[in-house]
Design a protein around this nucleic acid. Structure first.
Lengths: 216, 216
DNA sequence: CAAATATTGATATATATTTATCAATGATTA
DNA sequence: TAATCATTGATAAATATATATCAATATTTG
């Protein structure tokens, strides 16, 4: 008998994937409001997208609605959570215990959602040994063993851009499966490693572009 | 005689706009390396996109290249900077002096690039009066007058999601032109206000989705 | 300085994404 | 329970985006 296997959802376009968290967010609010069901029409209106897009997006992953009735809010919320992969626990480390690294470490909500931070790393001896939100800052030399020994699957990079590629290489060598990069540079990783960039300065530039016409 | 007017670049698709910072970043590196010229072919290869896309993107804004020669690196860098709007000074405030707000305040590089932070605001009396990176934390009650009196064009929201919409309303009422929102919620603003969202949790979920197949 | 080469910007083609439509069908109503 | 209504999921059409091609032309070479 074939082992129960998770669907792979290959061929689902990335634009669709990027909308999943938004669906999850809105459904979460509806769950809190104890709403039992909702139509694609109404949900789409709330989210300021088209009902067609909403239904088509969901249909990439299965048939979750009932004709003439709509979607059961709680069920759909759970299903999307599973699709996103939120039933897993992801163990994480942050490399770079500067302001941003420490800010992320303090954002303890992540851990509640299955994204669990176990350590920060830094090269600065002044920082090593300190504690952020109950999480220790270790010397970068300990990175490899810590990642390997503690089943760390995500490495978060919050170092200056000059150091980012080196850190990425070390994280990959140590065995992380994914990298969340906040350094303002495009790092290179093997195809098998999942890379998500958070280029804050880029967003600010997009804001700048869009503001141009409105400036004094 | 018609006043020299900045082009509006309406009808340029948002996907193209979002790539501009990346072009700017790579060209900046080439400028530092004192490279004089580059072809779309080579630059595209460096950036891991197609040469066709690069040329087509640039042609939305003008003709910057020379046939048989390529693009002058320094010129193109400057031009893209202007297109993005980096010759303006944007005055900014942060509302929410928690970890993330303070981390952003500490990231003083922004100010060098024309994005100048003038104050943080918070509701917590414990924080009001403190100083972050030389920038004072003020009481939220002072927000309106400060924004209005100091030609603040960008408001950065780093408060919990429950407070985000209220803060956005106050920023808009006080006269900001754009909002950079880090709260994990979709806030509503008038059409005339430019809104950029930085939904960090959403990115982490996309990472989660893409990691699914690779987990234990 | 003429010929060969490189490279753009424009256009055409292909692909991807979004939106509109509607038959099928379960829910609701009388 | 039969008739009506609401809403999905699928398909088709429209739109947007990316890629390939190539004539035009500036640069480089011999």
């Amino acid at each position: 008998m074939k082992k129960d296997q998770r669907p792979s959802y290959d061929h689902v376009p990335m634009v669709v994937i990027k909308r999943l968290p938004k669906y999850y967010r809105y459904l979460g609010e509806l769950v809190e409001k104890k709403l039992e069901r909702i139509s694609s029409q109404k949900l789409a209106q709330m989210m300021d997208i088209s009902a067609s897009q909403l239904r088509q997006d969901l249909n990439h992953f299965g048939e979750f609605g009932q004709q003439g009735y709509g979607y059961r809010v709680e069920d759909l919320y759970q299903e999307i959570g599973k699709i996103i992969g939120l039933e897993y626990q992801y163990n994480m480390v942050i490399v770079g215990a500067g302001n941003l690294g420490r800010a992320l470490a303090n954002y303890s909500n992540f851990c509640l959602r299955g994204f669990c931070l176990w350590a920060l790393f830094d090269i600065d001896p002044e920082l090593v040994g300190l504690n952020v939100n109950g999480i220790g800052i270790k010397d970068i030399s300990e990175l490899h063993d810590f990642v390997a020994d503690n089943n760390i699957s995500i490495g978060i990079i919050t170092v200056p851009k000059e150091a980012a590629q080196g850190v990425a290489d070390r994280l990959v060598a140590a065995g992380v499966k994914g990298i969340w990069n906040f350094a303002p540079v495009d790092i290179k990783v093997p195809d098998s490693i999942i890379l998500e960039n958070e280029h804050l300065a880029d967003s600010l530039m997009v804001l700048s572009f869009r503001l141009r016409g409105k400036m004094g």
